[in-house]
Amino acid sequence: MSTAPRSLTDRPTLWPWLLLTPLALYLAIFFLVPLAQVAWMSVSEPTPGFGNYADALTGTLFRKVMLNTFFTAALVAFCCLLVGYPLAWLMTKTTPARATAILLLITMSFWTSFLVRTYAWMVLLGRNGPVAWAIEALGYGEPPQMLFTRFASTLAMVHILAPYMIMNIYSVMTKIDPALIRSAESMGARGGSLMRHVYLPLTAPGIANGAVLVFVICLGFYVTPVLLGSPREQMAAGLIGRQIEEFLAFGPGSAMAMILLAVTLVILAVYHRRFGLDRLYG
């Protein structure tokens, strides 16, 4: 089938693979080896066997925290979609200059340290913060407890992760052929119908990519839920950290980390079957 000259496409060459070696070495040394160590610790400490896994899977605390972790990640991904989709749409509709300005504002939050952003929310949502002050000034009475609740940690995580969602959706939206929309309109599709049957399906890959990225990154969140959330809604990373930090339970902590990794991989595999992981790379 191919009409391209054989020499350009099929010439066996090692060059691309050689270029990959620095990255491969880096990953092997700083990711695969430590990961293997964690896997080894999970079955060797304190005693050899799968006792750590059995304990983790039967323990109520771990199960509760895992459920909460996946629930929170899904909630954050959903909220990111709610705020991200309209914003991405706005960027495609406005002038290029304004779209660039919006993009700049969104990426700017990446330049600010993670911790600083988390502390900023502590100030904003505090009992004597501007939000509480505004609620009282507007006559809504005693402001509710906002800090140290699920509301605060979810809000902060959405703030941190929304750019991933927005940029994924935006990149898909800009590639939509305007002719498709025009033809749909010429055939009588209007408003909600156009959205439901044409625009939404066309942007679905962006939504799926953004959601998976936000979901997976959120699974590993540590600092934000600890500082802003309630102890009743712990995330897995925090629990694993405490296992190591407080109980020196390297084995059980490693087992929990491996379970979290395994569940994450299962979710990615399901996603891959449905949408194809390769789409994550645009």
């Binding site: 109520t60 605390l61 509760k64 925290v65 102890p231 009743r232 712990q234 629990l239 405490r242 407080e246 109980f247």
Partner: peptide, 10 residues
Amino acid sequence: SMRFEEWLAS
């Protein structure tokens, strides 16, 4: 400590 952590999460 373990019991405390479980108590906190409940």
